[in-house]
Amino acid sequence: MGDIVSVVVWVLLLSGAFFLVTGSLGMVRLPDVFTRMHAAGMVDTMGAGLTLAGLCVYSLHDGANLVAVRLVLVLAFLWFTSPIATHAVAKAALSGGTTPYTVRGAEAGGEVDDRTGAAPEAARKAPGDGERGGGDTR
């Protein structure tokens, strides 16, 4: 295979791997389920997307073929289902009584939560202990 194609595939696969590992690291490091959802979204969008794009470029090197079409289909299914699953988790967590982690004092400006009824009082009584408060869900 050509050098340029090889380089493109390497770049796509490595950046996809970067986003996969970073998103998973975020799932371990971030404080609560709502912030972890963003990290999980990273894995679902760019991690999977760039990796599959790399595979797609590699297989397209042999000319247009079914493998590339199927990779595009896999990616399309992933990208269609991922936000719905994420939203389902978020909705279930909210209605299940999980309180979103907030940094206290940052709620001064803007049109911020308070009329969601999603247990804002628990968010308010969380101690203002800086960035890594560990989440008030534990």
Binding site: M27, V33, R36, M37, A40, T86, V89, A92, A93, G96, T98, G135, T137, R138
Partner: peptide, 10 residues
């Protein structure tokens, strides 16, 4: 994961 939702998400 402290809550079940963390586990489902993972």
């Amino acid at each position: 994961g402290p809550t079940a939702y963390d586990r489902v998400l993972a």
